[in-house]
Each structure stands twice: as C-alpha cells, then as structure tokens.
Amino acid sequence: MGCGCVLALLAGASPRLALGLVWLLTNLVHRAFHGIVLPLLGLVFVPFGTLMYVLTYRPGHGVPGWGWALVVLGFALDLGNYGAGARARERSR
C-alpha cells in the first residue's frame, strides 16, 4: 500500500473508516477472511483489532509472530475506546 502514513493517521482517527477503505480499495480483507460475516463483526465491534489482523495477514502463512502482537495491541485499543466511552457516560450523569 503506497500511502501507509495516511492510512495510519486515518486509522488513529477513525479505524472503521480506515478498515472500510482498505476493504473497498484493496483485496486485503478478502485474503484474510473467507466470508463476509467475520469482517463485518470486526468492523462493528473491534475495528482496530480487525484492521491490524488484515494488515498483518500473509497468505499461506497466516499472521506472523510480531503480527499477533499488533493484533493484540489493536484489541487493547478497542477495549480502551469502550472503557473511555463508558467513563464519559458516567461523568455526564
């Protein structure tokens, strides 16, 4: 992907939009998943983790060792976003 820095900035601001663009403009999502259900669930519930999985997946090899560290980091970012949203709702009450 030629615009890696732009994708990284976009992913930080809106991981769902970044994953949607990767899905529409490349074949990376189709390589990583065999179907539409899992990527759609990932888009809705864990967009950072799904994006990291899609970007680190290698056909025939799966996700390499350090790739799993990035997937776990993405999942941790998703959990952090959910926690920050819950904290903001508590403060607004």
Rank of each mutant, 00 (worst) to 15 (best):
P15C: 12
L79G: 09
H34T: 09
C3G: 01
V44C: 12
P39H: 04
P47L: 15
A84S: 11
V54W: 02
L43S: 04
L41T: 05
L17P: 03
G67F: 03
G49N: 04
L17N: 03
R91V: 12
P64M: 07
A69E: 02
A11M: 11
V6H: 00
V71N: 02
R58L: 14
L38R: 13
L28A: 15
H34S: 15
L40D: 00
L70P: 06
F45I: 13
A18R: 07
P15M: 10
G65Q: 08
A88S: 12
A69Y: 04
T26P: 01
Y57Q: 03
P47Y: 13
V44Y: 13
L21V: 10
V22F: 03
V46S: 15
L79S: 06
G65F: 10
R93Q: 13
G49Q: 11
F45L: 15
G35F: 07
G2Q: 04
G49H: 03
V6E: 11
G2C: 00
G85N: 12
R16H: 06
H34G: 06
R91P: 00
P59T: 05
F33N: 02
A86K: 05
P59K: 04
F45Q: 06
A32E: 04
L51V: 10
Y57N: 03
V44M: 12
F48C: 15
T56H: 11
M52W: 02
L55A: 12
R87N: 00
A8R: 13
P59Y: 03
R31M: 09
A13V: 14
G67V: 05
L24D: 01
T56V: 05
A18L: 12
L73M: 10
G80K: 08
Y57S: 02
V29N: 01
D78P: 08
A69V: 15
L7D: 08
R93W: 13
G12C: 12
G65S: 09
L28P: 00
Y53I: 07
G20K: 11
R58D: 02
Y57W: 13
L77T: 11
A76R: 05
V22C: 06
G85T: 06
G2V: 00
D78A: 13
S92H: 10
L43E: 01
L77E: 04
A86S: 02
A13W: 10
V71R: 03
G67N: 07
P64I: 05
L17R: 14
L51A: 12
L51F: 07
L7P: 04
V6P: 00
G2P: 01
V44L: 15
L43C: 02
P15K: 07
I36T: 12
L40K: 06
L7G: 06
C3F: 01
G74N: 05
R87W: 14
F45A: 15
L43M: 14
P59H: 03
G42E: 04
P59W: 01
T50H: 08
G83A: 15
D78S: 10
A32Q: 09
L24T: 01
M1D: 11
T50K: 09
L25H: 04
